[in-house]
Simulated scan of single mutants.
Amino acid sequence: MDHRRSAEEEHMGGWQAMTPRPGGACVATLPAGREIVIPPGGCTGWHFHRVRLDAVVLAGTLTRVLHDRTVEVHPAGTTFVEPAGIGHIHLGHNLGTEPVVLHVTPVLPAGTPFAIPTPAPAGVPRALCGQHAR
């Protein structure tokens, strides 16, 4: 089963943290969560999350624009936290030439939307993300 999820999917997906192997051995895998793939040139759109997210950048480089216009760049191998709530609106860009692959570990009940779309914060220039700026 392929656990990759696109940035456009709205619902939580996940898998087990340990994979049993014959003979009782276990092989460590990523903790239960969701994998998000953002293609080169892609943008998540402005959104926020209802719960805290812990994220690991597995491939590519993610550029995040936060609600206060702060820009954070996260290359492969780095981690970051996205706090919960409408006070933490943000978007993610893939400004590189390879897909950005993120693994995020939110705790959501089944069927709960993963992200809540929202208009851009006041004063953010349209050029930040012409595809999603409002």
Rank of each mutant, 00 (worst) to 15 (best):
F80Q: 06
L66Y: 07
P75V: 07
G41D: 02
P75F: 00
R50A: 11
F80A: 01
V71P: 04
T79Q: 08
H47M: 09
R69I: 12
T61Y: 08
A76Y: 08
T78N: 08
V56P: 00
R50G: 14
L58V: 08
T63P: 10
R50H: 10
W46N: 03
G77Q: 02
H67M: 15
R50K: 09
T78K: 05
H67T: 11
F48Y: 15
G60T: 09
E72T: 14
L58Q: 06
L62M: 14
P40W: 00
V51I: 02
L58A: 08
R64H: 07
G42H: 13
A76S: 13
R64E: 13
H67Y: 14
T63V: 13
L66E: 12
V73D: 06
L62V: 09
D68Q: 14
H74E: 08
E82K: 04
W46V: 06
P40K: 13
D54S: 13
C43D: 12
G41M: 03
R69L: 15
E82T: 10
H49T: 12
T70P: 11
E82R: 04
V51R: 01
E72K: 12
T44S: 15
H49F: 13
E82N: 08
T44K: 07
V73R: 05
L62R: 10
T63F: 05
P75R: 04
F80K: 07
P75A: 00
A59R: 10
A55K: 01
T78S: 11
D68G: 05
G45L: 02
L62G: 13
D68L: 09
E82S: 12
V81A: 10
R69V: 14
T78D: 09
V57A: 07
P40I: 02
V81Q: 09
D54C: 12
T70V: 09
V51F: 00
L62Q: 08
G60C: 04
V65I: 15
G77M: 01
